[in-house]
Design a protein around this nucleic acid. Sequence first.
DNA 1: CTAGAAATGTAATATTATTACATTTGTACA
DNA 2: TGTACAAATGTAATAATATTACATTTCTAG
Lengths: 165, 165
Amino acid sequence: MDRAPLAFAKHDHERCRADALADAQHLCKTRGVRLTPVRERVLDLLWQAHRPLRAYDILETLSAEGFGSQPPVVYRALDFLIEQGFAHKIERLNAYLACDCPTDDHGAKFLICTACERVAEFDDRAIAEALSEVAAGSGFMIGRATLEVEGLCPDCCDAEGGANG
Amino acid sequence: MDRAPLAFAKHDHERCRADALADAQHLCKTRGVRLTPVRERVLDLLWQAHRPLRAYDILETLSAEGFGSQPPVVYRALDFLIEQGFAHKIERLNAYLACDCPTDDHGAKFLICTACERVAEFDDRAIAEALSEVAAGSGFMIGRATLEVEGLCPDCCDAEGGANG
DNA sequence: CTAGAAATGTAATATTATTACATTTGTACA
DNA sequence: TGTACAAATGTAATAATATTACATTTCTAG
């Protein structure tokens, strides 16, 4: 099953983390915005984790590393990363995830495994197009869209299903 | 624009509220579950509002009406209504909405107007099918899916766009 | 090198939700 | 009946998530 989204597939985490940070730095320069130490550190933590992190867990790390210790420290960094498209909030989990789908069809889409708790971002043209048609047909002007799908990832599906799954 | 989802279209609220309550009562009997006073009252409040309500706002009403005054009172009622498919949580808003889309393609889908704050639930075969294909292709087994789309509803779109919008 | 903007630090508080446990209500059935 | 068990409710306490307000520091433009 090699069509699994990145986060459910085997790959070199360290490599994608390094690439993502480099990309973010470059994009920030281009856009004239600042990837300050705390912002970069939060993005790095999200990439290292490669799974959703909760704000207060990130805050704990930041605080231990000498950054501020109050909630706004982490929420401001997350707001920035989300605005810039480097991260997303998973609403169902109240948790935050680095973005690995650079495409922008005004929609973040996630597969959330309820067994192993991994989350994969994915992109899908057909869904984006279908949504655009709904909007066009109903007169709704789309801003941001989030699709959050709970279920079992391929690995956990195999594990539960067993031989006859 | 008569293809607008129910909540964005003109219609007889009182009628759809009454129908929905009757349907819920009937379904509960069929399923052997109990639509107790507090549960029914919460469902009624959601239908009357015809927009998302926050848990603590509902709780305030319940408390004033002689029901319990602590959070579990409302969260338990909401849990029941959601389990039974009579209501949904809008994650982006931390608010709860009566369900007006009885179809079940394991997905609740919402258009959220950021201007007037109305929310319309909608159903769309193409999106459901596209999602099923993504799942099939990636080996993911879908449980529940939620699509939350922020933007401008037809009315607010017209209002903002003006003559040349 | 200074004015203004942007970012950060911190305290206080608001909002949303859950756990734990005692009590009451409903239901099955001896 | 009335008793036993399950379901539902009431309440206190607390956890988890997030925002406001304001002082301070850092960056950037000129």
